[in-house]
Amino acid sequence: MTSSTTSAATPQGVRARQAAMRLCALARTDELDAALAALDAPADVADLRRPETGLVMTRGRIGGDGRPFNAGEATVTRAAVRLPTGEAGFAYHLGRDAVRARKAAILDALFQARPDAVEVALAPVADRVAAERAREARQVAATKVDFFTMVRGED
């Protein structure tokens, strides 16, 4: 991925930022710590908004593909920070972990200036998630069934 060549405002830039946000949302706190350490993240990060937990209403679709309906709420924690160099970063995560959300917001802010470096720093998360998904897929694949319809003996 060479997102440094694309501006953050382009659709490609937004997709790259979403991909980094997705990894942050799937990452554990210690993984975010490792990424921040690898990026030599500044210590004096200002809160644009203190981390806050609230609700979002999730939606399904009637029949899976029809009109939306409200399925139920989920807890979400958000954080917004500004780096000393001026970049703002945001995070919205399922759950109530304010510390994790703030770390992710710092990574999002760093992504504004150094997208390639952040992608590299988050690569271990991507690898771990991919490995876990592949393992789950192999376990699920082992439960694949072929049903045979028996011929009824009534002619």
Partner: peptide
């Protein structure tokens, strides 16, 4: 849940793109 603010409504879940376990 009554103690928390509501941030908004999510995009509808795409169950067609589900990573199926069953």
């Amino acid at each position: 849940r009554t103690t928390l603010p509501r941030f908004g409504y999510c995009e509808a879940l795409d169950t067609g793109a589900m990573r199926v376990r069953r």
